[in-house]
Simulated scan of single mutants.
Amino acid sequence: MLPDRASVYILVVLTVFVAMLLDVYPLALEYRIFRPQFTLLVVIYWVYILPQSSSMALLLLLGLLQDVTVGAPLGQHPLMLIMVGYLCLRSYRRVRHFARWQESLWVLLLVASAQLLAYWVQALHGRQMDGFEFLLPAVASACCWPLLAMVFDRLRRHYRIARQV
């Protein structure tokens, strides 16, 4: 028996909610720079699995919610999510055939480009960052990707959610 659309959307919303909780979970100052971009990773996964159900308007709303939750300058996360969502929609057919390590490299590039956009928005807001440590979340996200994809694949199989073509 295949799941109905409502249960699929509930699962997606729940995973995004858990990812947002992980994004705001308090960490010690010295470890915050190594926090993976969980919401971005979840969005990447679901856009690859359900590309026809992806919506840039929903990514915009999710980004605004994330800006308000995290306290970032308004527009930073929507810009990141829409850019990464667009790149995922343009490349999902190709990336589906990648091995996990190749997917991790692709995720590294996606999250690094999102981090560069966030760095740019922060610089426009007047915050100065020095060095390349703002790219460390991209490395942490790429390292987390195989585990996250494996857990989500198992969750997707359990609920019988098929990939869209």
Rank of each mutant, 00 (worst) to 15 (best):
Y48M: 13
V8Y: 09
R156H: 14
S55I: 10
R5S: 15
Y92H: 10
G126N: 01
A149D: 14
L41I: 01
D130Y: 11
D23I: 03
A19T: 04
V13I: 14
L117A: 10
W120N: 09
M83R: 04
G71R: 00
C144D: 08
R35C: 01
L50A: 04
V121T: 08
F152W: 13
L64K: 00
M80A: 12
Y92T: 01
L21N: 05
G75W: 01
F152M: 15
V165G: 14
F17P: 00
V139F: 09
Y48S: 12
E103W: 06
Q122R: 06
L22V: 00
A138H: 07
G85D: 05
F34P: 02
L79H: 06
E30C: 03
A123L: 06
L27A: 05
Q122M: 13
L60W: 11
C144F: 12
Y9A: 14
V68Q: 12
F98K: 07
G131K: 00
P3R: 04
L110M: 15
G71E: 00
L148V: 12
P51K: 00
L110D: 11
A114R: 07
V43W: 00
I44G: 06
F152V: 05
A118V: 04
L79S: 11
I82W: 01
A6T: 11
M129N: 11
M1L: 15
Q66S: 12
M83V: 13
R35D: 01
A114L: 07
M20C: 08
W106S: 10
S113N: 08
S54A: 15
E103Q: 14
Q122H: 10
R93M: 13
V12E: 07
L148D: 13
A6C: 08
P137G: 06
Q115C: 11
Q37L: 02
R93N: 11
Y25K: 00
C88G: 08
V47A: 13
V47C: 12
R157Q: 15
Q52K: 13
A112C: 06
R154L: 11
L40M: 10
M56Q: 08
A99W: 08
L21F: 03
V121N: 04
I33Q: 04
M20K: 04
R94H: 06
V68T: 13
Y25H: 02
R93Y: 04
Q102D: 08
E103V: 02
M129C: 02
L21Q: 06
V47I: 15
C144M: 13
L11A: 14
E30G: 01
S91T: 09
Y25R: 00
W145K: 08
W101S: 15
S141D: 05
A140M: 03
I10E: 15
A118R: 03
S141K: 02
L58C: 07
M56Y: 11
